[in-house]
Design a protein around this nucleic acid. Structure first.
Length: 923
RNA sequence: GGGCGAGUAGCUCAGUUGGUUAGAGCGCCUGCCUUACACGCAGGAUGUCGGGGGUUCGAGUCCCUCCUCGCCCACCA
């Protein structure tokens, strides 16, 4: 006799379960693959092909800002990565999910500066050294938070390999990359107009200066000719304060309006200097007045014009955005405007010009203003010395990688965006006038000679190191390399895990990060860093506004974990995420978003409680030990359904790596449909296992004997596999339940986390035999509801099997139990005064309900069903008699339609016969 | 200015090369505490697939056009 029921709590305690399992997983080190596990470092060079060693499967985590706390965007991103990682780990790969954090130059520095600000101090008051110590200290205090939060949502990262961009390894990678590029002539110092943030006091790259469409004003200013003729040229500008830096007015060479004026000079108002009228094709005669004021130091286009015409380039603004003179071209800023803020100066200059009659008109004007991506300050174009990376050469292999399908971008629509950006790439400004970050490895001697070095030069005390630090993204783009040990090319991890596999992130950082990583991969390893880029959607609120803390429309994942459990959070995120589609959540109604996940966990728990208490703890034989003849129809059905579920889950998850060196066309967009995968698994365990199969086992389990053992074996096998299918999405509850399953040869592993991903069992063909039983139950239930039969009342019922159907005792009992009926199988029953149902396979269900039965209604219903079917049959017949269809539709479609036609014809005949026997003249 | 995405049940979304009667979850209605589960069970209602036009034997799916929303890119001052 079996061991009695296990003691399983009625209520699932997510908090306790999650904490306990996470600790056990990490204690057992199950998330840390060794480099030697990877077939790439195996002694056997064939092992990647013949399967004698594990394939590596690597994801590097997009490193969150070190001082950040987890928001739903991370929650989504990390859940997706973890689901994929857990799937591959179970599927037999040496799965590595490598976590880490980013020092986040501007962002972190801003936070610490704000703290200083509350004490009334700036970073300049405390000095560089002290400021860096203070910032490092702040990072030490807050830096671990976000990764701990990743743990609490179940992230199966390899914490032994946790990286940080300012660690020695990644820092040496930064220096190595800089020096190598410098030696290859791809890093250079240039005097250019760059985007300047006058709040952060640093230059920004093009990507860091974000466009925002705003309504501004277009000021029309009149500049008089300096020959005293009284003539003038009217120019249009959105930034009148820059007029003090004007060095010319440009017109189109073919513009007849200005042809005679080219070469003459104008007197720049206020500054009172003479500036030439030059001809340049850059000017669009159609826009504004066709005359453009040229301010080379404060506009990138004007800078180009200035270079072409060898014009001076006076800077008239300080880094703080105040007007001042820096010009060798003479005093341009009048003393009453010096030190005035740029926007204040705009007002004042407009006033002055208005008074002098030089302001002709002001139009409202829609234009794009560029703002700092960290502090939203309007950036100022400004001429300055900066370090740049020359990008064209680096971009070429990155373009080729995507074009040749070495790298796929999913969904593929992002490929066009990626290609367009790389084709039009501009040089990357990598120097930042900040303190927090990797200092540029460049020194200058007293003669101004440049020394670029991987290490601090021995005579550093005689030299001056470049004051600037590198763009944060200059360390980020090396992430897949630096976290695996580069620049040490002999690093075991680099050999075992590079190139990595999937890069999973949001589309926002396609340019900032993803494309640059691909460039770095080719530049330094001559190999792509990953073969798949999966760009998932963005988390938004119900108004489709991106969730953010500052907007107050965020959801704290930690609240969700506490209220609903990590599994519920993960389930919600995955089931709501169409491929590449945004995830919409309502921050004001957590219940609506997350209760389905919690409810699913509860359902799973209750399935487990029932199943486990029934099967007990005694050991269970494997499914292979059971002879075919021992299975019931329900057994064969659910085992067939399991195969279908496994197959569909695999198809939704897709290939983990390309078949060959490059992706096959057909695989470019396949897989990564995580919502389909979880829906398939959910349907299997809930609507098939729980709703139907479990019910079929109740009587068998109670009856005992040999069949009880068969049912036990199938129950355990099916639930075991269902839990495995679900584990990547709901890791905690599946581990908790799986551990309670009786062990056997199929379950040798210590954790479900490291047990094998389910495989289809060819022994069990997909079949629909059991569905007749289901249809009978559904029909009887519907009749009971239709006639409002009291729930407890046992009714009589008859079933007349079709030649194809047929019922065994267990099935009859099942139907009786689930429908509270006294079902009898008959062949000759024909009670005209009863409720009738005709099942699709011809099986008839007859329910004598005495006075309740309304034959008018029954006949009307049957008639309606018949008419509907006839209508469809007519349409189908029409289609089949249409030569266009028969000739052009695929053969298998036509064949299926023909089979259907035959089926429906039979069914119509059956229904007509039924109606005529039941309803006589009424039919 | 250029490009992309979305518009399917009250809400959030599936719907893979065009092929029966368009699906799920939540919500709603009716009835049930049926000894795994009321975070549940059973039964049920709900859609001119954004509008219009076209291609096709056949369109939610392909083409054109218009409308609405969102995103990305962009040196027209």
């Amino acid at each position: 006799m079996a061991t009695p029921n296990q003691d399983i709590p009625t209520q699932y305690d997510s908090a306790a379960t999650e904490r306990a399992w996470y600790e056990r997983w990490t204690a057992a080190d199950v998330f840390s693959p060794k480099a030697s596990d990877s077939c790439r470092t195996s002694d056997n060079p064939q092992s990647c092909k013949d399967g004698s060693a594990k394939n590596p499967f690597t994801i590097v985590m997009p490193p969150p800002n070190v001082t950040a706390v987890l928001h739903m965007g991370h929650g989504l991103n990390d859940t997706v990565q973890d689901v994929i990682t857990r799937w591959r780990r179970m599927a037999g790969d040496a799965a590595l999910w490598l976590p880490g954090t980013d020092h986040a130059g501007i962002a972190t520095q801003n936070v610490v500066e704000r703290q200083l600000g509350t004490e009334g101090k700036t970073r300049f008051d405390v000095g560089r050294e002290a400021f860096l110590l203070k910032t490092a200290d702040f990072v030490k205090q807050t830096g671990g938070i976000i990764l701990d939060q990743v743990k609490s949502i179940g992230g199966s990262c390899d914490w032994d390999r946790t990286a940080y961009t300012l660690d020695e390894g990644p820092s040496s990678a930064v220096r190595e990359a800089f020096v190598q590029l410098y030696e290859r002539g791809l890093v250079y110092k240039g005097n250019r107009v760059i985007h300047w943030c006058s709040r952060c006091l640093t230059s920004l790259s093009d990507e860091e200066a974000e466009h925002s469409d705003e309504t501004g004003a277009l000021y029309h200013l009149s500049y008089p000719l300096s020959d005293g003729s009284g003539q003038s040229i009217i120019v249009a500008t959105t930034r009148p304060e820059t007029m003090l830096g004007d060095v010319a007015v440009a017109v189109h060479p073919d513009d007849p309006r200005y042809a005679s004026l080219i070469g003459k000079t104008l007197t720049l108002p206020i500054a009172n200097v003479d500036i030439p009228i030059v001809a340049d094709t850059y000017v669009d005669p159609e826009f504004g007045t066709g005359a453009v004021k040229i301010t080379p130091a404060h506009d990138p286009n004007d800078f180009e014009v200035g270079k072409r015409h060898a014009l001076p380039m006076p800077i008239i603004m300080t880094p703080e955005g105040l007007l001042d003179n820096f010009s060798e071209a003479g005093e341009r800023v009048p003393s009453n405007l010096k030190g005035v803020d740029r926007f204040e100066a705009r007002k004042k200059i407009v006033e002055i010009l208005k008074a002098s009659g030089n302001l002709i008109k002001v139009e409202t004007h829609q234009h794009a203003v560029r703002r700092c991506y960290r502090c939203n300050t309007v950036v100022e174009p400004r001429l300055s010395d900066q370090w740049f990376v020359s990008m064209k050469e680096l971009a070429a292999p990155a373009l080729e990688a995507v074009r040749s399908r070495k790298v796929r971008i999913v969904p593929d629509r992002w490929e066009a965006v990626y290609i367009h950006w790389l084709e039009n790439i501009r040089d990357w400004n990598i120097s930042r006038q900040l303190w927090w970050g990797h200092r540029i490895p460049v020194w200058y001697d007293k003669d101004g000679n440049v020394i670029v070095s991987r290490t601090t030069p021995e005579n550093a005390h005689e030299l001056r190191q470049d004051e600037d630090v590198l763009d944060t993204w200059f360390s980020s783009w090396l992430w897949p390399l630096s976290t695996l040990g580069w620049p040490n090319k002999e690093s075991a991890d680099l050999k075992a895990f590079y190139p990595t596999d999937f890069l999973i992130t949001a589309p926002e950082i396609l340019f900032f990060w993803v494309s640059r990583m691909i460039m770095a991969g080719y530049a330094f390893m001559d190999e792509t860093p990953f073969h798949t880029v999966y760009l998932h959607g963005t988390v938004r609120d119900t108004n489709h506004v991106k969730m953010s803390k500052s907007l107050g429309n965020g959801i704290d994942p930690m609240d969700v974990v506490q209220l609903y459990g990590a599994d519920a959070l993960r389930y919600t995120v995955i089931s709501g995420l169409g491929m590449g589609a945004d995830l919409i959540l309502d921050p004001n109604d957590l219940e609506k978003s997350f209760s389905p996940g919690r409810n699913f966990a509860t359902k799973l728990w209750n399935i487990g409680r029932f199943l486990l208490s029934n099967v007990g703890t005694d050991s269970v034989d494997t499914i292979d030990s059971v002879d075919d003849s021992k299975f019931t129809r329900a057994d064969r059905w659910i085992l067939g359904r399991l195969n279908v579920a496994i197959n569909e889950c695999n198809a939704a998850l897709g290939p983990a790596r390309p078949n060959r060196d490059v992706w096959d066309e057909k695989d470019l967009n396949s897989g990564l449909r995580l919502n389909e995968y979880i829906e398939t698994a959910r349907r299997f365990v809930w609507n098939e296992v729980a709703d139907w199969y479990l019910e079929t086992t109740k009587a068998r389990m109670a009856a005992g004997g040999e069949d009880r053992e068969v049912a036990r074996i199938v129950l355990v096998h099916v639930f075991d596999n269902a839990l495995r299918l679900l584990h990547p999405v709901v890791p905690f509850i599946t581990e908790e339940l799986w551990q309670k399953l009786p062990r056997n040869a199929e379950r040798p592993a210590e954790f479900i986390t490291i047990t094998n991903w389910p495989v289809e069992n060819p022994r069990f063909q997909s079949n629909s035999e059991f569905e007749t039983v289901r249809d009978v139950i559904n029909a009887l239930r519907a009749k009971r509801a239709e006639y409002a039969v009291a729930p407890g009342k046992v009714i009589d019922a008859f079933v007349i099997p079709d030649a194809r159907s047929g019922f065994i005792t267990e099935e009859i009992n099942l139907i009786r139990n689930l429908t509270r009926s006294n079902l009898k199988v008959e062949t000759g029953v024909d009670d005209p005064n009863a409720a009738h149902a005709l099942l699709p396979d011809g099986t008839q269900v007859i329910v004598p309900l005495g006075d309740l039965v309304d034959m008018e209604k029954e006949c009307a219903k049957l008639q309606k069903d018949l008419e509907q079917l006839e209508k469809q049959l007519v349409a189908l017949t029409g289609r089949l008699s249409n030569p266009g269809f028969v000739d052009r539709a695929p053969a298998n479609v036509v064949e299926a339609e023909r089979a259907k036609q035959a089926d429906w014809t039979t069914r119509c005949d059956q229904m007509r016969a039924k109606i005529s026997s039941l309803c006589g003249s009424r039919g």
